[in-house]
Nucleic acid binder design. Structure first.
Lengths: 126, 126
DNA sequence: ATACAATGTAGAGTAAACTCTATGTCAAGA
DNA sequence: TCTTGACATAGAGTTTACTCTACATTGTAT
């Protein structure tokens, strides 16, 4: 299937402006039809979904751009791309560990509030 | 203990400019000495460490500011503060779940690269 | 034929969270 | 006394990632 920028925007949940911005930044390079309109493919869809994951895991546009450039070069960059992803996985693991620690502390804090609220509600009322 | 802004900066890992910015935004309000210098306390330290957790879990400054305001009001806002944290815990749970899903996909991608690299290295060499 | 909606480009504007600069004060050491 | 270093304020500048505006072009329904 091929998609206009409007359709692709709905499909991906990214705004039309954002898609053009991503193209400007070299993250994605859709085909063009005879009228110079962008034609996004299913391959573009898979690719943009992956970009969304990278973004959501905290990879900055600059780095995604570098990855995209390697990707466009083809096979000779397979290893370097894998290395990037391995490094990113490491960062992701650390991020998850940090968040889980934050969650513990947040739970403690909430427990503290529960007790404190109970205490305050009791004091002076009995 | 009391700390100058310089010491507090080293203690927290936040830049001096950032500390002043946080104060300007109402996140923290250290005492002042006779010379108008900021005097951070251990309570400020505990508080800023919590702020750092909120930030690291994606809470925007605006929201932290709101929390700080409630905190400054004291007991009457205990419940509202707890509610905020409960909501934030929910968001955090979702964030962790998303990241874990991303991690799975990233692992698949890395596996794919491993195989692809092996394939490319084999082809034409034997 | 014409109006309208979607698309194109180029470039300006926005929001968040810092980060830095200019300028001034003040206590302490050489 | 002079200088140095840490601190003060006010406000400008930076970075990232969009998001929007202005204006031109084109395919389609009336």
């Amino acid at each position: 299937m091929e998609y206009s920028i409007g359709d692709f925007s709905k499909l991906t949940g990214l705004g039309i402006h954002t898609l053009r911005y991503y193209e400007h930044e070299g993250l994605i390079t859709p085909e063009r039809n005879s009228n110079n309109r962008r034609c996004y493919s299913d391959k573009d869809l898979t690719w943009i979904e992956f970009i969304k994951r990278l973004k959501d895991t905290g990879m900055p546009i600059k780095e995604i751009k570098h990855y995209a450039k390697l990707r466009a070069t083809g096979n000779p960059t397979l290893f370097e791309r894998m290395e990037m992803l391995v490094q990113h996985r490491q960062a992701l693991d650390e991020q998850i560990a940090r968040l889980q620690d934050h969650k513990l502390k947040l739970n403690e804090k909430i427990e503290f509030y529960k007790k404190e609220i109970a205490r305050v509600n009791t004091r002076g009322t009995g």
